[in-house]
Computed example of a mutant assay.
Amino acid sequence: MTYAKDDLRSALTTTSAPAPRATGPAAAPEFLDFSITAPDVVTPGGSRQWIVRGQNFVLIHTEPVPGDLIFSGELASEQVVLVIDESSGIRGSSPDSADAHTVNGPALVVVPPGASELVSTGSGQITQLIQSDELDWAARASNAGSYAQPHPHVAPLQPWPEPVGGYRWRTYRMADVPDDPKRFGRIFRTRAFMVNFIRPNNGPRNPHKLSPHFHDDFEQCSLIVAGTYVHHIQTPWGTDADQWRPEDHARVGSPSATVIPPPTVHTSQAIGSGVNHLIDIFSGPRHDFSAQPGWVLNADEYPAPRD
């Protein structure tokens, strides 16, 4: 791991070199740039949707038409909805809840298992996160073929304990999160997901303060919702030169989702001159982030597993 001294992640417990959990080659990164690809779905109301997946999750990204029904279905597990910015909004409902759940962004919403509907109340972006064991949704992903066989370096999802007080609609508004220089980002977790709803930044990232690092056994999904980035990704060499892969220095626009496999070394660099906004997604939740006091903002509702 390589972090600048003033990067809070420098306090994380790390190993000195990638230590994959399985033999064989690492998977290739998935660069899924919605800004240059046609949507997978256009709803009857005209909303545009891209559906992609990682090992343990399915991501649905929507550029909505206000008032459009963008989701209606029944899930066995919770889903997470990212209401991206001030122009984004949803009205959610479920049969066992008498009230509609109206949320303006930026916010993170947890939808309980069961039947639910989501109607967009704005024109801003909305992203849904669903477990990949919802097989119908996993099959709809445009990159489903990349996961025809499970990636052996990625640990299977083992959901964390149930939320305190049971399942219900939960809303976390970013406006309610004060700045804290001792906390890394704005991190929330559920049983299956961890999301770092990083604040938008203006201008390029300092190229002298990048943060190349790796993960032993979990993917990182970097969702770009504003600006332009370069994802720098290096696959560690093994003894078999036929499995070596050139470094990636992939430029992506917004919106886009990049799935970064373990144990690749990676860092993301904002290069846009205006607003750049990246949101990091993990499935399942990260133990190292969870171990840092105060980093997970809803830890009182979603407990960590006991040792």
Rank of each mutant, 00 (worst) to 15 (best):
V103G: 06
E74L: 01
S97W: 11
D133C: 01
E86L: 04
V111A: 02
G92I: 09
S88T: 13
V80E: 08
G89E: 12
T127L: 00
G89C: 06
S97Y: 13
H101G: 02
I130N: 06
A100F: 06
G67H: 06
V83A: 05
D96C: 06
G89Y: 10
A138G: 14
G114M: 01
D68Q: 02
V80D: 12
Q79T: 13
P106Y: 13
A115V: 14
S132R: 03
S120A: 14
D133K: 05
A98F: 11
D68G: 13
E74M: 06
G124W: 02
A100I: 04
S116N: 15
E74A: 09
L82R: 10
D96I: 10
I70R: 00
R91W: 03
L75P: 11
P113R: 02
A100H: 13
G73P: 10
I70G: 08
I126P: 02
A98V: 11
L82M: 15
A115H: 14
I126M: 02
S132M: 02
E117Y: 05
I126R: 00
G92F: 03
L129C: 13
L129Q: 07
F71K: 09
L118W: 04
F71A: 15
V109S: 00
D68N: 04
P112E: 02
F71H: 13
S77F: 08
I130T: 06
T102C: 09
P113H: 09
T102R: 11
S120D: 09
Q131E: 08
I130V: 14
G67E: 10
G114L: 06
I90T: 05
A138H: 08
Q128R: 15
P113L: 00
T121L: 01
S123M: 03
I70C: 04
D136E: 15
S97V: 12
V81K: 05
G122M: 04
V111Q: 02
A115N: 10
S88K: 02
P112Q: 08
T102A: 07
E86V: 05
I126L: 11
D136S: 12
